[in-house]
Nucleic acid binder design. Structure first.
Lengths: 107, 107
DNA sequence: TCTCGATACATTGATATACGATGTATAACA
DNA sequence: TGTTATACATCGTATATCAATGTATCGAGA
């Protein structure tokens, strides 16, 4: 079983990470770790494939740049379609969760 | 992408379905469909493997019986470990969801 | 100056999951 | 008699996550 993460939610979390502006992969990992209070530690073997998926689907674009620390880094940025995807996938997630929690709470 | 179901939650939903008493596979499918207001339609190709998993892990036991309609049917029942699993997995799900929703709602 | 830790990229292989398609069989009912 | 609903199950495919591994660079401190 997958433990670290609720399966199927990684792409959504990455989309959200990019919502405030471009970030490189490593930065996304740090961001998620930070906003989750160290609960989420997304491995690179999960994160980079996820970023590839977003680019392939046209939800993010990637370009090389220089990180805050002066290092070469690949920056990912949400496209217009990516912003729409974030909104709809987020709503869908809430819908799913509400349904499941309702079932779990029925006596 | 998986659409019908939030991945990783099927076993939890099946455990919950069995919480009120023994059920056969077909009955679980009907139950989930009913309590979700027709939103959830778990296919048999998902459901039966899930039941096998629960049995293998010792969370459910299976025995042949006769259904309400007089048909031969395999009834699944929660074990003690299964009840514990339902409780802990349910709590874990809530924990995960809270974390994700908190992240999604940060400005 | 050399080494080490942190930063940053990425791939590979193992494992698990979900789903559509398919196949079997029986009971009830029209 | 045939059709629908019930009930079991498996197979192949697509997808996802994760652990492990590999490469390279930068800055700080020994």
């Amino acid at each position: 079983m997958y433990r670290e993460l609720l399966p199927g939610t990684l792409d959504l979390l990455v989309l959200k990470s990019l919502a405030k502006g471009p970030l490189h992969g490593y930065g996304i990992g740090l961001y998620l770790r930070q906003v989750s209070g160290d609960l989420l530690q997304v491995g690179e073997g999960s994160l980079y494939p996820a970023l590839q998926r977003l680019v392939v689907k046209g939800w993010a674009s990637a370009k090389w740049g220089v990180s805050e620390t002066g290092r070469k880094a690949r920056f990912y940025e949400l496209t217009g379609a990516g912003k729409e995807q974030l909104a709809s996938e987020s709503a869908e997630f809430d819908r799913m969760v509400n349904m499941i929690q309702q079932i779990l709470r029925t006596a």
